[in-house]
Nucleic acid binder design. Structure first.
Lengths: 137, 137
DNA sequence: ACATTACTTTAGAATAATTATAAAATTGGT
DNA sequence: ACCAATTTTATAATTATTCTAAAGTAATGT
């Protein structure tokens, strides 16, 4: 359990005002050592059940996008009706179970290093994401 | 330029009735050796400019989803407001330029083989997709 | 502490891709 | 040609996300 003053500092340093809503979301997302995957819909429910505060949907979107821009969250590239975010911002990949709509982390050491031979003139690589779709045997 | 009778046969064999709309879409998608990436919106415009037929939006969606289910098209996993499809159904990966919203094929030989060490009990790997996001240097 | 400014939150409206609906049209088999 | 099954179509419904602009809150200077 981290103290909220830690989040207040971090938010300020990032140029984000430490509002009640942002601190609450920080606590819900980052107060555990476990990283996890969520959609805005998931997070809305988490807020509802785990805080006695109502945060408007627009604020949830704003906050998550702000955190993502600052690099505290990663958006995961999958085709789903909802966008997934990851509190694990390290370079890593994912399993995705399309039936259960669930993501599972693949740590960097779970995947042999990926090397791309092709280059595009005038372009540089920003990120390399591997999505491994899985299914019942 | 393939003959439409070829598509009629293929559709019939797949259990899809060869309608005027489906044949038109086949011709627009598969009448070239070049494979390409498109969104439903792209395809709607292609139909508009390259055939003298108006195909309703619902039919475009139905057809593309039917073709995808039969394995004639691949959906590409990226987070975009629109879903991308690929006429190249072979195992391959992609560059994605988020600014220009453009996809570029990475042939299988452009990427060193990907090996996943982790396994999930009761689950098998269905596909492995690599998305390389690129940006201006 | 107070005032002023800038940033945030909020509810609700707007947007846009996709899916659902159900009537009309077309296809395939007899 | 006839009939049943499938398909197309226009339109409505759905849903995630973004926009808007008014009200609230935080930061800063006095």
């Amino acid at each position: 359990m981290r103290s909220s003053t830690e989040y207040i500092e971090k938010l300020r340093k990032s140029g984000l005002r430490p509002t009640k809503q942002r601190i609450t979301i920080c606590e819900l997302l980052f107060n555990t050592d476990k990283t996890f995957h969520f959609t805005i819909n998931d997070l809305t429910k988490i807020i509802e059940f785990n805080s006695n505060q109502k945060i408007s949907l627009a604020t949830v979107y704003n906050t998550i996008h702000a955190f993502q821009k600052k690099g505290y969250l990663k958006e995961i590239a999958i085709n789903s009706s909802q966008t997934y975010f990851d509190t694990n911002i390290s370079a890593h990949h994912h399993f995705f179970d399309e039936k259960e709509k669930k993501l599972i982390d693949l740590e960097d050491e779970d995947v042999y290093p990926i090397k791309i031979k092709k280059t595009i003139p005038g372009k540089k690589i920003k990120s390399v994401e591997v999505l491994v779709k899985i299914d019942k045997i």
